[in-house]
Simulated assay, not measured.
Amino acid sequence: MNPAARVQAAIDLLDAMIVAARASGASADRIAADWFRARRYVGSSDRRAIRNLAWDAMRACGDIPHNGRAALLQLARQDPALPALFDGSRYGPAPIGADEQAATGGVAPAWLLTTLAASGITADEQPALLTRAPLDIRANALRITRDELAVRLPVAAQPGPGPDTLRLPTGTPVESWPEFAAGLFEVQDAGSQLVCTAMNAMPGETVVDLCAGGGGKTLALAAMMANQGRLIACDVDRARLSHLPQRAARAGATVECRLLNGGREREGLRDLAGTVDAVLVDAPCSGTGTWRRNPEARWRLTPAVIDRYAAIQAHVLDLAAGLVRPGGRIGFITCSLLDAEGSDAVAAFLARNPRWRAEPPALEIGRAHGRGWRLTPGHDGTDGFFVASLRAP
């Protein structure tokens, strides 16, 4: 494909993503995967170029664009090479009209920027929420050390924050490497790895990952526990949890998987009540800390959506509290930078449970925030996270 055709393809792809974002439909990643699957004639270099254009255009637009062309026009204001590619050629986009309007630029919709600022993410730090993220991997301590893994990789990797982190350039095809197939590492943002260490999971303990999803943090816990003890991964999403057994087998991790019935979770956890050493609550949230990877997520948010996530977090924290033994602990994590889904949620839990106490974890990077700890892209070079450690009486 020539460069103009790539621009038109990015416009077409963005049109599908914008429709999905407005309707709370499939994610941009899913839309792109399906779009390229239906166009197998598009070569790998063209796919990469089209995807980069689409994601850069999403990052360039603060509000949801009217359509993909408006999004590319906004990107063209920032990239002087792009306007010439609107050339009207056979497979390229039509020339830019004299009065044609580009989408609105910016980091996010105005109301969301105000909410971020009120949560301590000031204007000078907000642009970093949309920078391209590096690729971080976690050496699987059940199979190999970080230094041993670094020697074996086909490209140079730099140690990142955390004991097992290696950092590689964005787009490195690590999942095609034999080292990945052998379970020597997992793809995981350095921030996600660090907030797992705040759990301080120990060999021999009983640990529950209450919102395990696909199991990225579950596998990190298994490595911390050296496969000694009992690790139970729970979720209400059958599709997401179904990926964990295969991932655990590849990593050599011993994990029990438990599918819970949404709204009736206590029934599925009754046998664990009051017996668990530690519960990880990697709570559902708005994902404001992951915009580097999912820039379209900011177009899907409303105040009502954030309120709904806050209510879910309160519910899951109360579930976790019923599982913990006396003196046990909860690790509360969100990949959100909004206080409503972080420090406020912890403060509300402590108000409901005044005998519990917060023990803010001091990670090697990040800053104290509220009754916990915060990592941000601008300050720490990781995805954004809030983490708190809560101790039962």
Score class of each variant (00 low, 15 high):
Ser336Met: 05
Met17Phe: 00
Leu112Tyr: 03
Ala358Gly: 07
Ala190Glu: 02
Pro154Ala: 05
Arg90Gln: 09
Ala21Gly: 01
Asn140Phe: 15
Trp177Leu: 14
Ser89Asp: 09
Pro154Leu: 02
Met202Phe: 07
Arg6Ile: 10
Ala392Arg: 08
Ala223Asp: 10
Gly88Gln: 05
Tyr309Lys: 01
Cys61Phe: 00
Leu280Arg: 14
Leu75Val: 04
Ala314Tyr: 04
Arg132Thr: 11
Trp291Leu: 13
Val7Leu: 13
Asp79Tyr: 01
Gln193Gly: 11
Thr376Trp: 03
Ser286Glu: 05
Ala76Gln: 00
Ala340His: 06
Arg69Ser: 01
Leu112Met: 13
Ala278Gly: 13
Leu166Val: 12
Leu13Arg: 01
Ile306Pro: 04
Ala253Pro: 06
Leu221Glu: 12
Arg258Lys: 09
Arg258Ser: 10
Thr206Tyr: 02
Cys257Glu: 14
Ala33Tyr: 11
Ala81Val: 03
Pro161Ala: 15
Ala226Met: 13
Arg374Ser: 14
Glu256Ala: 12
Pro169Ile: 12
Gln246Pro: 00
Leu129Ser: 01
Asp235His: 03
Arg266Pro: 00
Trp299Thr: 01
Arg39Asp: 14
Ala156Asn: 11
Thr114Phe: 02
Gln101Glu: 09
Glu256Gln: 15
Glu179Asn: 06
Glu186Cys: 06
Ala368Lys: 11
Leu112Thr: 06
Gly372Tyr: 05
Gly274Tyr: 13
Asp380Val: 11
Arg37Cys: 06
Pro127Arg: 05
Phe386Ser: 08
Ser389Lys: 15
Gly263His: 10
Gly216Glu: 08
